[in-house]
Design a binder for these strands. Sequence first.
DNA 1: GGCCGATAGTTGTATGAGGCAACCATTCCG
DNA 2: CGGAATGGTTGCCTCATACAACTATCGGCC
Lengths: 163, 163
Amino acid sequence: MVDDAGSAARRELLAHLREMLKAVRLLKNDMSTQHPDVPAGTLSVLALIDAMGGEPAAPGCHVKDLAARSSLDPSTVSRAVAAVVRAGLVERTADPHDGRASVLGLTPAGRRSLDDAMAWTDDRLAGALEKWNPEDISVFTALLQRFSADLMSHHHRPLEAAR
Amino acid sequence: MVDDAGSAARRELLAHLREMLKAVRLLKNDMSTQHPDVPAGTLSVLALIDAMGGEPAAPGCHVKDLAARSSLDPSTVSRAVAAVVRAGLVERTADPHDGRASVLGLTPAGRRSLDDAMAWTDDRLAGALEKWNPEDISVFTALLQRFSADLMSHHHRPLEAAR
DNA sequence: GGCCGATAGTTGTATGAGGCAACCATTCCG
DNA sequence: CGGAATGGTTGCCTCATACAACTATCGGCC
């Protein structure tokens, strides 16, 4: 049956997915032990803030936006932001257009930390990929992107869609 | 510079990796809400026990083995195992050759739960991959495997290796 | 122009995963 | 036999995350 072959392929994919999660877990582990200054896990917050117009000119990233982009609960993001603010990596300024919100932006220290962490990660990644040719990397990246997108599009109650 | 191109590619890969982690987080989320019986996260333990000669004939999987294969602390695995044992999904029998250890194996209920969860996951995966042709899937799987392996081989103190 | 629903954010509380260290029980080796 | 190593468990801690309740503000409507 075609279906059986597909299922077997999916089982294998799943197994390697688990393996990848393990690898990522270990990577994060290393990072927190070797890079204790970046409050670990808040790194993604830094990166996100940076990615969303860290410059004051942009409409600014609010906690709400970060939560939306990362699919996390606002409370989670709020705590993470509080942590990086406490650590002096992010600056919170009142939004002139909305008294409820604050605009978030990296401080110089935050940028430095982010750059450090990125450099470290890039090193690790470069090490892991040293035997890959650029084409493989781009193919992998593209497939990864496609996979995440498809997985997410089929997320959240296919119930309503399927029946 | 070639190096710059490589770095850019890695940054992009990293971004999509984050995206994938998000997708997986959401997937797990769905699973725990829609599949509350399988104590969530212990699923990997079930799968591992199954993958390691769940049948009594095999040398049996000890907690130690599970910990090694999953790169988790024995204590973590111990708790997870305790949970599935409590839930009646796994049976613990004394190892005749080693009084300290116990041999773990799925109970019928455990097998059923595992099969259920696998079926559910497979469904999800099938949905996500419905527009993929088998070749893409296998390429993706292979690259994923290679990536995890390379990432892990460069894991944990490249210090000793690099200098 | 003032009130009510919506909205941004924070905080309280809970859960689950994971780690480290201390501890028991056993086993293995000199 | 006795001490070092080994398998496992448990205590305790940290993080990440969620949900719910709450506060403060905004915005539209009468």
